[in-house]
Design a protein around this nucleic acid. Sequence first.
DNA 1: ATTTACCGGTGGAACGATGCAGCAAGGTTA
DNA 2: TAACCTTGCTGCATCGTTCCACCGGTAAAT
Lengths: 353, 353
Amino acid sequence: MSGVTIYQVAREAGVSPSTVSNFLNGRPGRMLPQTRVRIADAIDRLGYRPNRAARQLRTGRIQVIGLVVPSVANPFWGNFARYLERAALADGYHVLLCNSEREPDRERRYLEELWADGIRGVVLCSSLPSLDHVLPLVETGLSLVAFDRTAQAGDPGTLVNISVDNVVGAHLATAHLLELGHRRIAFVSGSLRSINRRERFRGFTDAFEQAGLDPAGAIVWSGGAEQEPYGDLDAAGLGRRAAHELLRATDRPTAIVAINDMCALGISAGIRDAGLRVGQDISVVGFDDIVLADLAAPPLTTVRQPIADMAAAAFRHLRSRIESTETGPSQSLLLRPELVVRASTGPAPDARE
Amino acid sequence: MSGVTIYQVAREAGVSPSTVSNFLNGRPGRMLPQTRVRIADAIDRLGYRPNRAARQLRTGRIQVIGLVVPSVANPFWGNFARYLERAALADGYHVLLCNSEREPDRERRYLEELWADGIRGVVLCSSLPSLDHVLPLVETGLSLVAFDRTAQAGDPGTLVNISVDNVVGAHLATAHLLELGHRRIAFVSGSLRSINRRERFRGFTDAFEQAGLDPAGAIVWSGGAEQEPYGDLDAAGLGRRAAHELLRATDRPTAIVAINDMCALGISAGIRDAGLRVGQDISVVGFDDIVLADLAAPPLTTVRQPIADMAAAAFRHLRSRIESTETGPSQSLLLRPELVVRASTGPAPDARE
DNA sequence: ATTTACCGGTGGAACGATGCAGCAAGGTTA
DNA sequence: TAACCTTGCTGCATCGTTCCACCGGTAAAT
C-alpha cells in the first residue's frame, strides 16, 4: 500500500513528526528555513502524502462535500455538478455524488451516510417543500445549502438558499407568449409538489392575472407516474406524453410552458409526432437554458439560469459554513433569470388571421 | 458533532467495545443471543453510527470508488454516472466525482488525491491511449477499470477494460450510409488521440474498404481548440463549427459520421444554419444514443451503447478487484453496439436522380 | 529584579474502531 | 482429578495524524 507515513518523513529529514506536521499545516514560521527545506526534500524523495483518514479522525475535518441531485442523467444537473465540482476542486474539496430522485427517504439515508462519512456540508437540489426528513441531521450540525429552492417557513435557521427567481422566470416566459397573442396556453410539469415548480406555476398564473386574464382558463397538465411523480428520470418522455394528450383534445392549446428544458424538448418531439410545427402551429417555452436548447430544431425559447455563478455561490456559502464555527442566520441568494427568445415561439396562429 | 462512539454503546449495553465491534462486523455468533439484543437496543437508543474515518484508519478499507469522466456535463457521462452510482449504492459504496477533461495531468492529480483519500478503486473514462501517467499508482495498488477503452499493449497487467466495440459501431454507421448511396462522407471529431476515437475512425475506414472504396477519398474533419482538443466541454459547438466549414466547401459531403451524439446534434444545427435539411440534403449519424437523440428533429440515427449494463459491469469488476486480494490477469469486456436507424439519415441526393 | 514573550523545535496523549491474545467458568475426556 | 477444550467475553496495542504543553536559553517589557 501507500506506506509512507509522517514518521518516515521525520526520520528522513532528521526532525520529529510534530515538526513535519507543523510544516504541513501552515505553520512553517515555526522552524528554520533550512529545516523547511530538509522536510520538503524528504517529502519529495519518499513521495509522501498525508493519510486523510488519520487526519480526519484527529481533526474531524474532511475536504469533501456531498451533492444530492434528482438525477445527474438530466443535463441540467450534470452541468451543475460539473461547475460545482470545479469550484470545489479549486479549493481542494472533492464532491460525493448522490442521485435522490427527489425521494425524501433516499435523501435522508444519503445524508445520514454522508454524515457518518464525516462530511459536514451538502448541496441539496431536490427542492422539496419540507425539510423535516433531514432536520435531525441539520440539528446535529450538518450544513445544508439548498439549491433551486427558496426559503420556506419552518426551514432550519441555518439553511442557505440559492435559487433563480422562479416566479419571475415563469412570468417572463408566459408574458412572452401572451404578448405573441396566445390565449390558450398550457403549463406542463410532473408533480408540482416541489418549491421551485410551485413558484414557476405561480409565475405562470401571475402573468395571466397581470394581463387581465383569468388563469382558471389556462390548461394545466401535471402528470407523472406513481413511482416517479416528478418525472426527473424521463422528463422528456413525460413532456412527449403530455403533448400527445394535449393535442388530442378538441380545444387544444396554441402554446405550452414547460417546467424545464428537457420537458420542453419532449413536448417539441410530441408536437412533431402529431404532425404539427413547433414555433408556428404550437409555441413552446422551456426553463433552464441547457446547451441543447440552442441546438434543437427549432432552437428553444427558454428562461436562462446563470448556473455557473450559482454553482460557485453554492460552494462558497457551503464552505464558509463548514469552516467557520459561526452559525449565523439563514441567508438567501435569489438570482434574476433572463428570457432567451429563440424560434420555438411565434405569433399565435389565430391572432395572425 | 455526532459524538456517539462505540464506547458509549458498549457502556449502554453493559459490554466491552470489542463485543460491540464483533457485533457490527458480522461475528454475532460469538455472543449470546441476549447480548446481541442488548447491543442492538443500545445502538438504536443512542442512534450510533460507526465513524468511518476511524474504521478506515484501522482497516485500510473504505466503501468509496472514484469516477473520472471527461465532463459530467455531457449527457452521456451524466447518464453513465447515474447508473454507476446506482450500482455502487446497491452494494453500499459511494462515488466521488471527477471531471478530467481528458487531461493526463489532471487525471494523475485526481488519482493521487483519491489514493490519499484511501480510495483503492477508480473507473476511468478518459480513453487516453497511454496510461503511463497513472502507472505508478497502479503499481502501488490502485485498481483501475477503464471504460470506453480497449486493451492496449503496454497496459498495466491488472487493468480491466470495458467498452463497446467501437470499430464495429462506426462500421455499422458508415456501412448504413454507404448502403444509402452516399459516397462523399465526412468523419467529424475533436482530437483523435483517444483509443475509442481512433477505433471509431478505423471502423469508418474499414467500411469504405469493405465496400471496395478508397477511404482516402473520405473527408476527415478533426478539429478542436488548442486548449480543449477533444471538445468534451462543447462537443456540440465543435460539431456546429465543423458543419459550417464542411458545407462551405465546393465539394461538400452528403453525409457525416459524428464522433458522438452531442457532436451530431451540433452538426445538425450547423446544417440547418446553412439552410439545408438534415436527413434529406445531408445525412448525419451519431454515436452513443443519448436520450436526446430520439427527441431531436429529425430524430438522430445513431449507434447505441448499452450503458446501463456497462456501468453495472464496471462496478462489479471494480468491486471484485478491490475486495479480493487476488490480482489476476487483465480482463476485458467488449460489448456489441447496435445501429438505431431514425430520420437523420436518408438516401444520398445524387443517388436519387 | 522579575515577568513575559519569543525562538525552533520535541513528546505524547488523543481521535474511534478493530482484532488478536488472553481469561475465567464450565464441560469433557482419560 | 489433572489435563484439556469450548464458550463468551474483555484488555490492549494499533492505525497515522494533530496539536497542546513544554523544553532551556535569551531578550525585551514591566
